[in-house]
Design a protein around this nucleic acid. Structure first.
Length: 325
DNA sequence: AATTGCTCCAACCGCCAACCC
DNA sequence: CGGGTTGGCGGTTGGAGCAAT
């Protein structure tokens, strides 16, 4: 028996899309909007499978796609989110406006994996590759191990090449605040999705997060800032702790008007252009107690807190436990 | 210039869970 | 309630483009 095909394959085109097909799809969606992908091809005069149309639109034709090279900030954000979420590309993509899950997945497999391997980090576990795997199985308490690495030996154009790079692996235990953040988010999503969201992610993600307690690698550079100085001039503090939230803070999370609401958390809120938000907000839980920028979003902020990645600034993550060599 | 090997990424495939009747 | 349909996800593939030989 087997499943019925998603479409009549005998009379559908496959392979690369032509300009004409793209134009037809764009014109149709502009006129009628997204939805009902199964009937869309026929209605739009396309000899394509509905799935193929959806994929082409989402991954390539959507007007809010950013395209172009990934920035160093996006690189690091992807790495950190992957350490928390694993191969949940759609969740990761939800945190990177203008990027698609497919794009991030490809980028991970072609660039970031290699980048991490060059740093001596296993991209699957986010632990040092030469690390004894059994030594981490008993991390029931929050611990931090720091490994000074000859990072980026082969990564000539990385900004991380400059200065001393310290790779810090934080093992999160049951009381992992970041895990809580993600867990809260996922649970929150369950509530928000009561109107018809995709519940699979919740089932898939929750136990995984709870069980994995993934290590989180922070590339903490202990060196003077160099290429973000202009933007940082306003916040004159240049202590090492403030620089622990490096490039990431410049990622703006305002959402394009065309972008679908972040699926995770079901958020539809949009931040004013140029507003920087904390990590909790970037995860879609801007009203949580971990949020350090709600006042900013209300327009009453007394300081530009910048991107408080992992709550380092607010102390949600107790970075004092880190050993910095 | 031709061939080979490699990289990158758009597109496809199979699966799963929600939805719908 | 059950079965078919649909949308969405992650893994994989194939071909275009580029570099090396």
């Amino acid at each position: 028996m087997g499943r019925s095909p998603c479409c009549e394959k005998a009379h559908t085109n496959k392979g690369a899309w032509t300009k004409e097909e793209d134009d037809r799809l764009i014109a149709y969606i502009r006129a009628h909007g997204e939805g009902c992908w199964r009937s869309l091809p026929k209605a739009a005069g396309l000899l394509r499978c509905g799935k193929s149309c959806r994929l082409r639109w989402i991954n390539y034709l959507r007007p809010d796609l950013k395209r172009g090279n990934f920035t160093e900030e996006e690189d690091e954000l992807i790495i950190k989110l992957h350490s928390l979420l694993g191969n949940k590309w759609s969740l990761i993509a939800g945190r990177l406006p203008g990027r698609t899950d497919n794009e991030i997945k490809n980028y991970w497999n072609t660039h970031i994996r290699r980048k991490l391997l060059n740093r001596g980090i296993d991209p699957a576990t986010h632990r040092p590759v030469n690390d004894n795997p059994t030594s981490h199985h008993t991390n029931t308490n929050a611990t931090a191990t720091t490994t000074a690495t000859a990072a980026n030996n082969n990564n000539n154009n990385s900004s991380l090449d400059v200065g001393t790079t310290t790779t810090t692996t934080i093992s999160f235990a049951n009381a992992n605040p970041i895990t809580h953040l993600v867990k809260e988010e996922v649970e929150d999503e369950a509530k928000h999705n009561s109107d018809g969201g995709d519940h699979r992610k919740i089932k898939n993600t929750l136990p995984e997060i709870q069980e994995r307690c993934p290590d989180l690698n922070l590339e903490l550079r202990i060196s003077p800032p160099h290429h973000h100085q202009q933007q940082n001039n306003s916040s004159s503090s240049s202590s090492s702790s403030s620089y622990i939230q490096p490039q990431i803070q410049h990622v703006n999370y305002h959402h394009h008007h065309h972008q679908q609401p972040l699926k995770t958390g079901g958020r539809t809120s949009s931040f004013p252009s140029g507003t920087t938000i904390c990590f909790a907000c970037s995860l879609g839980i801007e009203n949580s107690k971990e949020c350090s920028c709600t006042t900013s979003l209300n327009g009453t902020s007394s300081s530009s807190t910048g991107y408080d990645f992992l709550g380092l600034k607010t102390g949600v993550l107790d970075y004092r436990s880190l050993e910095m060599k």
